[in-house]
Every structure is written in structure tokens, then in C-alpha cells.
Amino acid sequence: MAIFKDIAGLRQWRQNLRGTLALVPTMGNLHDGHLALVKLAATRAEQVLVSIYVNPLQFGPQEDFANYPRTLDQDLQRLQEAGCQTVFTPDDGLMYPRGRQDISVVMPPRSLSTVLCGASRPGHFVGVCTVLNKLLHMASPEILVLGEKDYQQLRIVQQMLSDLNLNVQVLPGPLQREPDGLAYSSRNTFLSLAERQVAPLLAATLFDLARRRISGADVPGLAAAGW
């Protein structure tokens, strides 16, 4: 497996590459949802590049950056077993050589980034858009593979690429779930045993609400019934 830690080596490899390149950006602690994206990428491109980088710019001051699970050796093993042969593992010094206090950033569209997750995590999507732009300019892929689990992020990135006229196709990957219905997520490891048992009920409730709505139930009626 080729593991690049610097931009020069990555760009030299990219320059010599023949065929289409798909980039799968991750923050590591890989699970089956990530591996499904890698496999999807391989169906659309001759070469797949997975990046592993815990981006501090998308974490708020009171968020879990310090505790975010970092399992690089395990991640590389899983990627190799999945057939991925190329990985980019930059560090903070490479991504933000002058630090993060006085740098150019990419501002996402306000209409998409200040609601839902963006309302409770101000600055999060600035960090996402900035690091993705840096990765895209470093690796120059034709395809960017993103999971539909983070649907708001997916829509923001699609709009950003269009607004900035970046010639990169976004390939969405379907959300992957564990056998009990909980979506795969690196942060699932933060759940206690009791929380892990309750968590799948959220997905089950949402699916039930969707079925009821499709069957003709109106939103006020569902709310009145205690949903």
C-alpha cells in the first residue's frame, strides 16, 4: 500500500497516474460505512485515494477534537483488506503550516450552512469546505465520494463545487446501517451501553413516521398523537 504524507509525493504520483481518480475523504476510525464508500469509488474510477485526517478546523472549542478516535494502524489494515492501495495521511503541519488563526477559508452558502447542524455548530462547515478544497487541490481527483449520512454536508459541498466552478463530480454513497438500524458513525464508540441500546430507536421512529406520512397521516395529526 502506498501511503503519502507530503504534497510533493502525492502530486508526483497523481501526475504519473493514468485513468480516473476518486477521492474518499475521511477522519479515520473507519467502519463499514467508510469501506462501502471505498468500494463504491472503485466501481467508478481506476484508482481510489483515501485521505485520513482529523481536521481541527471543523471542531468547535467545546467539541470532541482531543477525544476523537484515532486508529490509523487499524484503518490502514482495513483499507488494505478492502483493496485500497493508496492513502494520504497529512498532519496539521502540512495542512495548516502557518497555524489556523490567520488563514484563508472557504465560506459555504449561508442558506445551507446556518440551519440544522450548522445552527448548533457555527463554523463547522467552514472547516469542512476549507479542508475539502485543500484536499481537492492537492490530489486533483475527478470524483469526490461522500456519504449520504451527512446529507447537509453533501448538499453544501455540491453547491460549493458548483459555485467555485471546480470540475469535480460528487458521487453520493448510500447511508449504511448496523444490523439494528443505527447508522454507522465513528462517534458511536462514545455511546454508553445504555445509550447504544436506545440509539436505534431514533431511526426506527423516523422510519415509522415516514411510513405513516406516506400512508396519508398529516403532520399536525402525528404531532397531536405524541410523535
Rank of each mutant, 00 (worst) to 15 (best):
V219S: 06
G147K: 07
E195Q: 15
S185M: 06
T189G: 09
L193S: 11
S51Y: 02
A210M: 10
A217T: 15
D91H: 12
L76M: 02
P90W: 02
S192M: 05
L166A: 09
R18P: 01
H34N: 08
S140G: 04
L76V: 09
V106E: 13
L17E: 06
Q158G: 06
Y184D: 13
L23D: 01
R213I: 15
H34G: 11
I103R: 09
E178F: 00
I103S: 13
Q74K: 07
T86W: 00
T205F: 05
G127Y: 01
V145R: 11
T130P: 12
P90R: 12
G123F: 01
D102W: 14
V219C: 04
L40K: 14
L201D: 09
S140M: 02
V145F: 13
S104Q: 15
Q158W: 04
T20K: 14
S215K: 13
A45N: 11
L182S: 09
V87L: 00
K134W: 00
Y68T: 05
T130Y: 01
A225D: 15
D163S: 14
A36L: 10
E81G: 06
E46Q: 12
A139G: 01
S215R: 12
L79E: 02
L166W: 08
S120L: 12
Q47S: 12
R177L: 03
P90V: 00
V106D: 12
A210H: 10
P200Y: 12
D92V: 14
H31G: 05
Q77D: 14
G123Y: 06
D92M: 03
G60K: 04
E195C: 04
S162C: 11
R44P: 03
Q159N: 11
N133W: 01
V48P: 02
L135Q: 11
L37A: 13
W13A: 15
R18D: 15
L135W: 01
I103C: 08
P25M: 07
H34Q: 08
L135H: 02
P90A: 05
L112S: 03
L49G: 01
A36K: 10
L166F: 15
Y96L: 09
R18A: 15
D92G: 04
V115Q: 15
S186Q: 09
A225Y: 08
E63A: 09
L21T: 01
G60C: 01
E148S: 11
P90F: 07
A8T: 14
V105I: 14
D91V: 03
L222Q: 07
L164K: 05
S111N: 14
Q74I: 07
R70K: 08
E63G: 08
E46R: 01
R177P: 07
L191W: 03
V145D: 05
H124W: 10
